[in-house]
Design a protein around this nucleic acid. Sequence first.
DNA 1: CATGAATGAGACTTCATTCAT
DNA 2: GATGAATGAAGTCTCATTCAT
Lengths: 241, 241, 241, 241
Amino acid sequence: MADKSRPKTRKDRIMDAALRIFAEKGFQSATITEISKEAGVSEATIYEYFGTKEDLLFAIPEKITNETLEKSTKVIPYIKGVEGKIRAILLFYVQLYQSNPHYSALVLLQLMSNKRFRQTPAHAAIRRSSHGLLDCIKDGIADGTFKKDSNPYLIRSMLMGTIEHLFIHWHMQGMPKRKTSIIDMLDPFIEIILDGIRTKKEESGLTLYLKMEDAHTFGKLLQKKDIEDTRGHSRKIKSDY
Amino acid sequence: MADKSRPKTRKDRIMDAALRIFAEKGFQSATITEISKEAGVSEATIYEYFGTKEDLLFAIPEKITNETLEKSTKVIPYIKGVEGKIRAILLFYVQLYQSNPHYSALVLLQLMSNKRFRQTPAHAAIRRSSHGLLDCIKDGIADGTFKKDSNPYLIRSMLMGTIEHLFIHWHMQGMPKRKTSIIDMLDPFIEIILDGIRTKKEESGLTLYLKMEDAHTFGKLLQKKDIEDTRGHSRKIKSDY
Amino acid sequence: MADKSRPKTRKDRIMDAALRIFAEKGFQSATITEISKEAGVSEATIYEYFGTKEDLLFAIPEKITNETLEKSTKVIPYIKGVEGKIRAILLFYVQLYQSNPHYSALVLLQLMSNKRFRQTPAHAAIRRSSHGLLDCIKDGIADGTFKKDSNPYLIRSMLMGTIEHLFIHWHMQGMPKRKTSIIDMLDPFIEIILDGIRTKKEESGLTLYLKMEDAHTFGKLLQKKDIEDTRGHSRKIKSDY
Amino acid sequence: MADKSRPKTRKDRIMDAALRIFAEKGFQSATITEISKEAGVSEATIYEYFGTKEDLLFAIPEKITNETLEKSTKVIPYIKGVEGKIRAILLFYVQLYQSNPHYSALVLLQLMSNKRFRQTPAHAAIRRSSHGLLDCIKDGIADGTFKKDSNPYLIRSMLMGTIEHLFIHWHMQGMPKRKTSIIDMLDPFIEIILDGIRTKKEESGLTLYLKMEDAHTFGKLLQKKDIEDTRGHSRKIKSDY
DNA sequence: CATGAATGAGACTTCATTCAT
DNA sequence: GATGAATGAAGTCTCATTCAT
């Protein structure tokens, strides 16, 4: 609980400032001058730590992605069942995007369409994570959970595309506070897609959701916000999206 | 009537050049100088027609969107059935995005994350179109085609998000030619989603899909402005996406 | 006699200013800001005409060298005799260097030691001119005017090296006005060197000098300062060099 | 006495690195950072020893010039005859320039055109050395070895200018290995010039050249610093060399 | 002594935009 | 209407130099 964060290093201050400003104004419109003022350092100091404005840009997702993936790889193996894993991975994304809006704005609005970003270690990490999701889907097809004729790449695009779309629009509308946060939409939308590719007959119901004990493990591992239950609850939602 | 392909006007040449260059290099990296060279006019001429670089940017989707929507609004009313309408709308998007890659790159990679674009007539048109899709979904819920507890906003996000995701990735990978084009994924993915929200029991089945011959007709109709019906079909697709 | 030079073009004003400032402060210490002020144009205008600070640097000797060589190639062929030609070429250099001190400072003090300058058209012109001198020397060896065992490359280095040395020191001392200008040293020093490589016995005397009529032609062709006589006259010189 | 090759002092390491880098990239393009890395010290350490980048630049020739002149002043007095002395002095230059290309590049390409260098102790030493050469020439004129009407300043410029020219070009061409090194050109070129100013009649011939054994002695003396030989030296020389 | 860390000052360069012709 | 020419404004980046430790 104690604030173990000693006075932030200059480097961290720079990255924090840069994240905020890049996210708000875009990479090109952001200026090193502004970032340096926000970080309370001189412009030259920024170049001491990051050789280039673009290096600074790419350093931000690299740091965050690494931190996040580390957690993710520790947790996912403990989740039982293909669908649970899929839910867990998507939950990771949503939580990351939601808890760090500057980061999600940066990634979804700036970096997604940056070709050089794709040659970055940060993007490699993202690809790895995305590949993990794909593997879960393939496993589900292989073990008969999902229909044999499902296209796993398409499924993945549906899952990720929906999340990205939701966040992009949330950002573009100025991140309005809503009763129904995006995280609340996660289970309904996953359920729709999985329902569409499950080998029918079996009663979907609760067993398919991330189970109680899994969720518990999940929460502990994350050592963060409690995730008591990730079971689906598609309450009626009146979204002004 | 009049020859519709007379030597392009200066204004059109400018917009064509701008579309290509904005799409390829991004708005900020593109320069008026380069556009003027590509268009074969002087830089000053661009300012004759468009007050600002950003005005030029926004003029492009406005033109294309208007042209497209005009077609769309003529066609959709003739489609029978909620699902057919949904399919038709999405098919419009996919065809537009696929047939004009510069445009889809511009919209999906540049404009999507541009806040000022949202106050633009072009974006208003896009919103209208998007609203049409939402209305179809709501109609489907109201008339019992879809489950009562479906969240229409979420459904729309799934539909649009998937399409956008597929195109964004296609662009970011350099628009590779694939055996399975995105248009081939449309039916499978729509079916998965609709299947997940349909009030079951009723045999949805094949009749609801846009059939081969219908698709053909559809294509012709788009040209012709005469539209009869658009039922679907879902071919098996092995995508290497 | 009328001043045929209309108001100098911007480009010329820039080059004039740049020559003066580069010569005085050196390339690196000179700033575009200063040049632009001196030339009475904006900095951006300089980049309109010259893509780069270095491009501007190299454009200066290119222009001057071309102008000069043009004259030179028109005159030299009319000079009779190997020694006369040698004298004429060297006279060209000395006159150019003396009449345009900024240029000689630039070439001798800045460009001489600039490796990229050697890949420049201007330097190619200089090499051509230098090669012409070498050919004269070789001709002199071939026709028996000079000793068979003379090293023409060494001779050329002696001739050019002396001139360059004289001018470099003149510049480094702040270009003092002297009773004995460098041009006055030309004949004595040429005579010393030629005397050292001539096949002896023959009375050196006047015939070896650039002859009266040659000088006349020379002068007319140059259409410049009268060069009535370039005959050697090694007056006693008390130089404080 | 003391081991003269103990691990180099920091100061020496800095100067060595600086010499190499200044010579290769030029003063302005060289950076303190690069020099500090090459020397294996921190940038701040350089400022401990040298107040300024330019101070460091000027410290290098000062050191080398002092070392060299020390040797030179020990040797020259023992050379017999004006011409021998002249040869010896020039040989000093050529050997120094050739054996330490970084130094010659620095002096000939960087410092020669640096006005502040002229107010430096190092340059004073160079002037002194140059003055010694001038005195030899004047002595030769006074004692009838050279023609009365010779201009000693011009002669000196011819001698030094040729050497400098040869080295400058050698450097600018990337210091190619040649069968005929510059040192091999020394005698021929000196002979040409001296031949041009000698009071004729006397058979010049071989005796005037620095003889084989003299050259040998010369070389040894340079290494040994102990000079026994007291072979007759010529008439009074008014040389502060 | 030695240095890691920081920065002030300024350079080059780019580009959207204007305006007289 | 079309443009060649010019530029104001700003941005990224470099580097010699300083100073507390």
